[in-house]
């Protein structure tokens, strides 16, 4: 019984990592499995979110507060991962915006955002 508790708490200690892995893998799965171009971008965003979580949870210090210097606190979380991820979020937004803009243009040019229909139309007008 105590083994089980230890295993469960070991699992829970790293729950953030499991969420990271789940987001990463499900994001990639959506990118691969879906033919709808908007849904693919949603998957891509999920995948990128997992990267954010990976960095952020590495910067967390147990019992640490937000990294703003204040005489009342001595333990702070590591600020650098947050700053890095702020940059990565900007990159993610740019990617998503550009991706969606491309999908709009594809929809105008093909009248569809389903990958298989688009490939079919390209084959037809060879």
């Amino acid at each position: 019984m105590s083994d089980l508790v230890a295993a469960a708490s070991g699992f829970l200690d790293h729950y953030n990592q499991y969420i990271t892995i789940f987001l990463m893998v499900s994001g990639l799965y959506i990118v691969i499995a879906r033919g709808n171009m908007v849904k693919k971008l949603v998957g891509l965003s999920l995948f990128q979110s997992s990267v954010y979580l990976l960095y952020i949870s590495a910067g967390k210090v147990h019992g640490g507060t937000a990294p703003i210097i204040d005489p009342g606190f001595t333990v702070y979380s590591h600020p650098l991962p947050h700053v890095l991820i702020l940059t990565a979020i900007v990159v993610g937004i740019a990617t998503l915006a550009l991706g969606l803009a491309l999908v709009v243009r594809i929809n105008e040019a093909y009248g569809s955002i389903e990958e298989d229909e688009i490939f079919e139309r390209d084959r037809d007008d060879k």
């Binding site: 990463m24 990639l28 990118v31 171009m37 693919k40 971008l41 891509l44 995948f47 990128q48 990267v51 990976l54 990565a88 990617t95 550009l98 991706g99 491309l102 999908v103 243009r105 594809i106 040019a109 093909y110 688009i118 390209d122």
Partner: peptide
Amino acid sequence: NRRALVAAYQYLIVGTIGAGFYVI
């Protein structure tokens, strides 16, 4: 050519996954 749009989209998906892997 309108195929350029699809090519750019596909490159965007693959390129972002590549950069994502790198940053992981």
